[in-house]
Design a protein around this nucleic acid. Structure first.
Lengths: 188, 188
DNA sequence: ATTTAATCTTGACAGTGATAAGATTGCGTG
DNA sequence: CACGCAATCTTATCACTGTCAAGATTAAAT
């Protein structure tokens, strides 16, 4: 459409968007910097002015997706306040996100699992657990609440992976099924 | 060592073993058929007499690992019989396996999550859940027990992924911590 | 012993990530 | 406004990858 000048002007952004779309449609495996460059009408070496290497590029896209994902979780947390459905709804949002974008799951957690200790989505769960009156006495030590958080996140994240498998969960009654499964679990 | 003849004699097997070792040490990412061929003292095209393509080879190694993994789970199941610790011990075995071989996790679940509906490790969990008196009435419908199984597997599998992150779980008291976390979860 | 099929080598091809050297140009400083 | 710096892009190239076709070698079956 727009006749390009020598300088693209917006290459970094465009590469990331194209990369995102590519991952969504075809998965990371076959993504190549060269194809991406070409699809942006730019030479094969141009991307390396904006990204140190492919790994660096993928990390950037990864962070971009993670931000969107975090945004969704935050909104859910806000919507639920400290209500009794907070944890359940967080879990549902989590699982639904990856159920809708299965390739994202592979992309995010395949290339080196992020260290949950400073992984925002995990943080959100962590603080949600803390605000929850879980029935346990108020004086619960750090180890206990840590175990709870890890346990909760494990269920949700594991279920998200299942949701990634085509046909593993009934797409007709997805939300109900997720809710049923998550409700089958009680965190001490 | 042994001067080779024109025919290697055991190439398929050796490739798989070398591949396994490579994945264990360096991860799948940088594995190449050519390097593997060379390390077996064979030309770069030789492997294709035994495997249709790289994907086919990786699948074979994947299945090989999965078999070992299943074997461990089965032994655990046998050891526990229908005792009250069956589910807990199965979970521990599951998590410990990947805690000891973190690269295996990435390798197995990165390249397309296996369909749990015919995935042996999942089956083992599934039948373990069924033999367990979970407190619920005997007449529990299929949906319920399905939800339970999925929930249980989710926790365990999710936790296994966490165990994959270096330093996320305390390696000094690994078993205790796993047990504590799994015990924090009650499947309805 | 002769054929057949499995296995391996050689030599190629296209595609990949990456880098160095140089072309182009936007932008801030004088 | 002119100049020059630094960012950005191109061209050319490198080493490496998966894979295939054609032919060499040999084990196994007949």
């Amino acid at each position: 459409m727009t006749e390009r000048t020598y300088h693209h002007g917006n290459l970094r952004q465009e590469l990331m968007e194209k990369g995102l779309q590519y991952v969504e449609r075809y998965g990371v495996e076959s993504l190549s910097m060269r194809k991406l460059a070409e699809s942006s009408g730019v030479s094969s070496a141009a991307p390396y002015a904006h990204f140190k290497n492919k790994e660096d590029f993928l990390k950037a896209v990864q962070e971009y997706i993670t931000e969107q994902f975090s945004e969704i979780l935050k909104k859910t947390a806000e919507r639920c306040g400290n209500g009794p459905r907070l944890l359940l709804e967080l879990g549902k949002s989590y699982v639904l996100f990856f159920s809708e974008n299965p390739t994202y799951y592979r992309f995010l957690f395949t290339r080196g699992t992020p260290d949950i200790r400073d992984y925002e989505p995990f943080m959100i769960f962590s603080s949600a657990v803390c605000t929850q009156p879980t029935g346990g006495a108020a004086g619960e030590d750090a180890e206990e609440s840590r175990a709870k958080t890890l346990a909760l996140w494990s269920v949700v994240h594991g279920l998200a992976q299942i949701a990634t498998i085509p046909g593993a969960l009934d797409p007709e009654h997805l939300e109900e099924e997720i809710e049923r499964i998550l409700n089958a679990v009680t965190i001490k």
